[in-house]
């Protein structure tokens, strides 16, 4: 698959990825390597210039197009500032035309899932950065997506908050079993979270290598401090170093 922007920049070249159902996959690379572009193509927000996306497992919708249900988490929380946490989480259901009581019930469940029970009526500005990101994740989960696409969701958070959100994301993923494609520029985060790290290089954006992270789940703070984790981070770091130099 390729993507060339209208200004002629080749953003992605020869990207060929297989993503299995229920995978946790990280896209890791320097800025400008097209990892966000790839994610936006997966989300259907932009079209690839060449090549295609196949969703063999997806249900066919009314127009006969095979498209899985998607959840998207942006780098910023991207919430409606004039709406409460509950209304923000219920937004995707509202756009689907679901009845008010039903969507509010589901939104409340999703908020509880990300640890925000009791914050239904809070407005985004009253929430901390980490809590806003939790609301954003709850909104992505509320439609019970098949695939969760995350674009550097924790990049703007402090490390302590990030670790907690990493753990919470893993436990939600393990229990729900959806597929995650996680864009990050943090080696440590990608190794900690994923089953597979896809290392990308820039100009033009391309996949350099895929590294399997074989460590078993559940992963916790013990894993974060283990020698195995350090060794994996080293491998991925070296690979990323080569990708940047290439």
């Amino acid at each position: 698959m390729e993507k060339r922007f209208r200004n002629g920049t080749l953003a992605l070249r020869g990207v060929d990825l297989d993503i299995g159902r229920g995978d946790f996959l990280s896209l890791l690379g320097p800025s400008g390597c097209g990892k966000s572009t790839l994610l936006r193509i997966l989300a259907g927000l932009i079209e690839p210039s060449a090549g295609s996306l196949d969703w063999p497992m997806a249900v066919h919708d009314s127009r006969g197009a095979a498209k899985p249900k998607l959840g998207f988490v942006f780098q910023e929380p991207t919430l409606l500032p004039w709406a409460t946490a509950l209304a923000n989480v219920a937004l995707p259901l509202r756009l689907e035309g679901m009845a008010r009581s039903e969507r509010e019930h589901r939104a409340a469940t999703a908020l509880a899932r990300v640890g925000l029970a009791g914050f239904e009526t809070a407005y985004p500005r009253a929430l901390s950065g980490g809590m806003k990101m939790r609301v954003s994740i709850a909104r992505a989960l509320v439609t019970s997506p098949d695939i969760l696409l995350m674009d550097e969701p924790f990049a703007a958070l402090d490390e302590i908050t990030r670790f907690r959100l990493n753990n919470d994301l893993l436990s939600i993923w393990q229990e729900a079993g959806f597929t995650v494609v996680f864009v990050t520029h943090s080696v440590f985060e990608s190794v900690y979270l994923s089953e597979r790290v896809v290392v990308m290089a820039a100009r033009p954006g391309r996949v350099v290598r895929e590294i399997a992270i074989a460590a078993p789940y559940p992963r916790d703070e013990a894993f974060r401090t283990s020698a195995e984790y350090a060794a994996l981070c080293r491998t991925v770091s070296l690979c990323l170093g080569e990708a940047i130099a290439a």
């Binding site: 509880a112 899932r113 990300v114 640890g115 919470d168």
Partner: peptide, 8 residues
């Protein structure tokens, strides 16, 4: 049947 995370 999702289990809720402990409240933040």
């Amino acid at each position: 049947e999702a289990i809720a995370l402990p409240r933040v």
